[in-house]
């Protein structure tokens, strides 16, 4: 465990907290992509299947359960709970996620570590996580202006990815035996998707002002 990875995980947890607060306290899921949340639920449920046979630390196992629970709770609230379910707009949040899931499933089958079923599922989850934010980014783009909490949510997720990138660099240079080629590739793609958002986030938050983020 190094400081980059720890802060990355904390930033990831913070993103869940922000989103859960927003939809439970604010009673609205407006501006939040249910599609992205469903993709995250698929990502965590498939990657953390190994909860049943892999144990590396209590920290890891605990957070795996937390991630599955939080993403499931978010999907449940937006899809089934009143009044949140009435604030979700399927016409705005209509990104065709089958075009993300399909290619990621094929990539998982073809490009994985050692051709076992779990390695294929695991690689699929890594590829899908890389692109899971796209429906959310497209939704923000359509709306043009992004509510503060929503922008903090996306920023926390982006920070998590950036910190994980630093964690990989740190581990590569400090550990004798450490490679994660699939994760590095997908993680770099994933982090890249946030660059444009961060540019606009910085523009609207600089100078201590808390204006909503405006996207062109």
């Amino acid at each position: 465990m190094n400081i980059f990875r720890f802060l990355g995980d904390m930033s990831h947890i913070l993103s869940f907290v922000i989103l859960l607060l927003k939809i439970t306290q604010g009673k609205s899921a407006a501006g939040i992509s249910l599609r992205t949340q469903e993709l995250y639920m698929i990502v965590f449920c498939s990657r953390y299947l190994d909860l049943f046979w892999n144990f590396s630390s209590l920290y890891n196992s605990f957070l795996k359960v937390v991630f599955i629970a939080c993403s499931s709770a978010i999907v449940y609230i937006i899809r089934f709970k009143s009044p949140q379910k009435d604030t979700w707009n399927p016409e705005l949040d209509n990104f065709p996620i089958q075009y993300l899931i399909g290619p990621c499933a094929v990539a998982g089958l073809l490009i994985n570590q050692d051709w076992t079923p779990f390695e294929m599922i695991w690689a699929f989850s890594i590829y899908l996580e890389a692109v899971a934010i796209l429906p959310q980014l497209f939704l923000l783009q359509k709306q043009g202006e992004v509510e503060n909490l929503t922008s903090h949510y996306v920023a926390a997720l982006g920070a998590y990815r950036g910190l994980y990138l630093m964690n990989w660099v740190y581990r590569y240079f400090t550990e004798d035996d450490y490679l994660q080629r699939i994760v590095w590739f997908a993680g770099t793609v994933q982090t890249g998707l946030y660059i444009d958002f961060f540019y606009h986030y910085y523009q609207s938050k600089r100078g201590g002002l808390s204006r909503p983020v405006k996207l062109p």
């Binding site: 990875r5 995980d9 990831h12 190994d50 892999n54 590396s56 630390s57 890891n60 957070l63 795996k64 991630f67 570590q113 695991w122 994980y164 964690n167 581990r171 550990e175 004798d176 035996d177 450490y178 490679l179 994660q180 080629r181 994760v183």
Partner: peptide, 10 residues
Amino acid sequence: QKNEAPKDEL
């Protein structure tokens, strides 16, 4: 020569 790491990250 480095090897693929065990799955110890989230």
